[in-house]
């Protein structure tokens, strides 16, 4: 307390700002940088959802309606797979906090496998749709439906490739600053896929049959 008072007494010692650049650690910088990328990535989905708001019931000459191609109950399975994968990756983050490499690898593998199940299930679902004639070129609604679901699906595929790479790096290099930074950015990316899926499930799947 007394030192504070003496500082106030001498206005010359008060520092309002530093003249030297602030040296943040690389992990913090990479995290905020990747977060800003994620914010712009969200704008891609904003554009797609805007298109969905316009073309949601634009069937044109096609006889295929949203209610025919969308089954919200079976779409609960990809929801379960994706949320589980996000949970497992989160648990890998908890293991990283505890510096337990074996557990990190175990949970990351679990997250990868369940994420892969999500993608394979989605491919299977859309192959069936294509066989029934519900192809993207059939109507504006179907173009929109395929584009939104696969814009998200493509994100998940990229996330899986990234996860495989980080898995190998954790195995090979351990928890170096570079690997931990990549793990943190992948965690941001992967968690975001669950957030986007909430909108996809609600505004594409559920809204399509309401």
């Amino acid at each position: 307390m007394s030192t504070d008072l003496s500082r106030v007494a001498d206005p010359g010692s008060i520092k309002l700002y530093t003249t030297e650049p602030d040296h943040h650690d690389p992990i913090t910088l990479r995290s905020i940088g990747f977060w800003l990328y994620m914010m712009s990535d969200i704008m891609i989905f904003a554009g797609l959802f805007a298109a969905h708001g316009v073309y949601g019931d634009a069937y044109g000459t096609s006889k295929i309606t949203a209610a025919q191609v969308i089954d919200p109950i079976s779409a609960l399975f990809p929801t379960l797979f994706l949320f589980s994968s996000v949970l497992f990756f989160g648990l890998a983050g908890v293991a990283l906090k505890n510096n337990d490499r074996k557990e990190v690898l175990r949970w990351m593998t679990a997250a990868f496998v369940v994420g892969l199940v999500f993608v394979l299930q989605e491919i299977w679902e859309f192959v069936k749709l294509a066989q029934e004639g519900a192809v993207p070129q059939a109507s504006a609604f179907l173009s929109d439906f395929w584009t939104i679901v696969w814009a998200h699906g493509l994100h998940v595929i990229v996330g899986l490739i990234w996860m495989a790479v980080v898995l190998i790096q954790v195995l090979r290099d351990g928890f170096t600053e570079a690997v931990v930074g990549r793990f943190l950015n992948l965690r941001i990316f992967w968690f975001f896929q669950a957030v986007v899926w909430v909108f996809v499930y609600t505004f594409v799947y559920l809204m399509g049959v309401s």
Partner: peptide
């Protein structure tokens, strides 16, 4: 001292991740 000490790594929490999973689903 170690990258694991980074506050964003140390903020990981099982309870919060499980809550997010249950809430979302």
């Amino acid at each position: 001292s170690s990258p694991i000490d980074h506050p964003e790594i140390q903020s990981a929490s099982t309870l919060q991740y499980v809550s997010a999973f249950v809430l979302g689903l």
